[in-house]
Design a protein around this nucleic acid. Structure first.
Lengths: 339, 339
DNA sequence: CTGTTAGCGCATTCAC
DNA sequence: GTGAATGCGCTAACAG
């Protein structure tokens, strides 16, 4: 015995429209198999009664539920909402629903969600996964999976190459006369963090800059603010932060200590989620999160349709967005500031 | 014909364990109805075969799928993510999954989503719904529903009373010597907007302030920025904005025109989503969005459990958070600034 | 084109 | 305690 409340079913519509139940079903799934008038009559009746197909029943019968899961580390991190919305839209466009999962940056929670969603979704998009490669691989064997900002061979992935933008940032800093900079790192399990750190170090080495790393561990305003003491202790004159939130915290910490930005110290963020809203407006690296969401979802949809896993690796380049936390830097030594 | 892949069913287990299908079902749902040995034998067989209950089938049969829907106007609006996360956590805690819907502030989209979720969720939480009371009521007849920031009699709702905080804001402005202020309004279909506007007008009237309304129509940085021309045209000396985003835009527009804040003009936002990150740090009204999310979800869960719709009306008070966009105002006329 | 008939996998009455 | 039968709402052959 079931517990449905209003349960308006296909039968109600069939009766109201004076047709067989199967015709109602067809009207909703394969209208082309019916005469236009019949479809019309059925749809009218359906609308009049307020009938709407039951997805669960349909799923049981077809094995396809039209749901996908989108799992992110932290909904409240401004980097993700645009991505989520874009993914949502793309899903919507193809008439899919999305389950949203929030892992709070916790791998255990991520696994738990993956399990919890199993059997209810046809595929999943994992954003900035904190799982190990092996764990991710084991899930792939279960159902179609697309990764965002995680580079695992053989698994379709879309990568926002913040490395390109970060490289530009370091070059920009060198240009301004900085000799020693610090990279304020984010979550250690984050692929993006590894990528950014590597880019900073590579370019710094090439340009003859010294770089030290200061850990903020989590990506947040507070973490950035708390890192300022350690940043200043390095005697560096500029910081590239893991992301804008962290950079904003750094800005605040610097202000607390009376360090002028950009006159005495330069700061660059990453992801451009704050727009020009910080003070001073933050020099940062552009993000492509919306596109990442859209692309990841289409990739997933294509997989669901074609039933074939291709080793797609979609890379989205980023660039430096120069605002006001870098350009006014007055180099104490070395070449004069340009401009 | 179905399309299940691994499709191990209850029958397979039954055969392997030498029992009836119903016993297998019971072993998983009501073990107490079976003898311990039988349960053991069934569980062993199940594990050996790798059987795992089919969520969809179970849902169809019981009408309970352990899913709820959370529908918001705009995931990317910083007001919502904390609420979403809180709701998510509360759901998780009770072993429920959440479908996230984004309406883009569009009532039609909202209706569509509501339909799209039909049969997949046991209940829904509608945040800042843009639907008419009648439409909302019609959905209530379908399935358990809880409203956030929407006051419809008879429907369980949790209301963030920004009115209380906004009232404090206006009083604060009066105290500073302002004589004429403007309310920069948000979406007309927004309950919160109506509430805030009413609060501004009521308190202003009581305190003898003149208030004009300038429409920003959508809640965004750009809308706020674009409204500045009209705001200044009113000759008012302070603005209370629908929300922080709008206020931030106003701040930017003011800066563009060289109007000093708070010296020449005071600004107060609403919802406190930007923290102290604006420049100057924004005076605003606190939000209780996380609690709203948590409370709404527990309310919904309780309804699902008890099967009874109570006319709950949970109100969360807010307060003024004074930062730096108001206090330095130098009243040209009237009493001197306090402090 | 449309109606009839079976299931999809499981929970749940009823008998035993 | 356990098995046999029925149905959740819908889709998909199979006829006509």
């Amino acid at each position: 015995m079931t517990g449905r409340s209003t349960g308006l079913t296909i039968s109600d519509v069939a009766k109201a429209a004076g047709v067989a139940r199967s015709s109602v079903s067809r009207a909703f799934t394969r209208p082309d198999m019916l005469s236009p008038e019949t479809v019309q009559r059925i749809m009218d009746a359906a609308k009049r009664l307020g009938y709407v197909p039951n997805h669960t029943a349909r799923a049981l019968s077809t094995g396809r539920h039209g749901n996908v899961a989108l799992i992110v580390p932290d909904v409240a991190n401004p980097f993700f909402p645009p991505l989520i919305r874009a993914a949502q839209r793309e899903a919507e466009r193809r008439d899919f629903c999305v389950f949203l999962g929030n892992t709070d940056e916790d791998p255990k929670q991520e696994s738990k969600l993956l399990g919890r969603f199993a059997g209810q979704v046809e595929g999943v998009v994992l954003v900035s996964s904190r799982l190990s490669d092996a764990q991710i691989r084991s899930h792939v064997s279960q159902r179609p999976l697309v990764l965002i900002n995680r580079d695992v061979e053989g698994i379709p992935r879309v990568l926002i190459d913040s490395g390109s933008g970060v490289s530009e940032a370091v070059a920009h800093l060198a240009e301004l006369g900085h000799k020693k900079i610090v990279y304020v790192s984010g979550p250690v399990t984050s692929w993006s963090n590894k990528q950014r750190k590597a880019a900073v170090q590579a370019v710094a080495a090439r340009l003859g800059l010294t770089v030290e790393t200061v850990a903020a561990s989590v990506a947040s305003y507070d973490a950035g603010r708390n890192a300022v003491g350690r940043i200043l202790a390095t005697r560096a004159t500029a910081a590239v932060a893991f992301d804008d939130l962290t950079a904003q915290g750094v800005l605040a910490g610097l202000a607390d200590r009376g360090v002028a930005v950009p006159a005495d110290f330069s700061v660059v963020g990453c992801d451009d989620v704050l727009g020009a809203a910080t003070y001073p407006p933050l020099t940062t690296v552009s993000n492509r999160s919306e596109e990442a969401g859209t692309v990841a979802l289409s990739l997933l949809m294509d997989m669901l349709k074609s039933r074939v896993v291709q080793d797609a690796r979609h890379v989205l380049e980023t660039h430096l967005v120069v605002r006001n936390t870098t350009v006014g830097y007055k180099a104490a030594h070395g070449k004069a500031e340009p401009g």
